[in-house]
Amino acid sequence: MSFVQVRDLWQAYGDRSILERVNVDVAEGEFISIVGASGCGKSTFLRMLLAEERPTRGSIRIDGGEPALEPNRERGVVFQKYSVFPHLTVRDNLIAGQSFGTRWGALFGGAKAAARANADDMLAKIGLNHVADQYPASLSGGMQQRLAIAQALIAKPRVLLLDEPFGALDPGTRVQMHEFLQALRDETGMTVFMVTHDLEEGFKLGDRVLVFDKPRWDPHDPGAYGATITYDFDARDGGIPFQHLNPPTTKDITDAL
């Protein structure tokens, strides 16, 4: 059984259909890139994965669990902006990733020291230890997004959702961020969904690239039909297909006979 299971998902706002009949299965550890025209419902899909919104029809299950009713610790998220807390220092943002789940949202004594050490490890890893005591507003866009990703990861979600996380960054910073994200992902083996409007980025980072588009179109009523997944590309090995067909083993052949 697949790790993330999306079944017959529909979403409509009033009588405007945004998504229809979205079905997809994702294995644990896969990196899914989501591309599509602006306004076609990519963020809407991500919001439903996040359980910030509930679908009009259909369901999303993670690891066979019940569909979630609200965002929870299973799903980490990074948005294009506003993903870190402006009133907390860089280090405290990472501590928040560990303390917000407690009764008072704060840690004390040994747990606090451990969270701090944990945060400092993470800061060293993401190259932000020199700005640990600064506030996010004084960081560059790329540093803020690195912090946001680290903050999401430090809470150990099962699925990481990224909505155009590098959309506001300049091209050079983007390339750095790609390397950063790939390294983190190789290390954690996290299941990732990333919305991007940059096809190249989608293919570079993703194992699969899902394309959202409207299969049906009513010229008299553009809101009548929603978008769905029209292509599901294998993007491993630079997009060259058939690299992972397993040759049959002797056992397979004897079993077949």
Binding site: R73, F85, P86, W104
Partner: peptide, 27 residues
Amino acid sequence: IPREQIVKAQTLGASSGVIALRVALPQ
């Protein structure tokens, strides 16, 4: 307060009370 921050706090496991105390109040 940007919706993103409130959602983010929830994904970090924050309850309504923690969001009030640690996200909304200080801001």
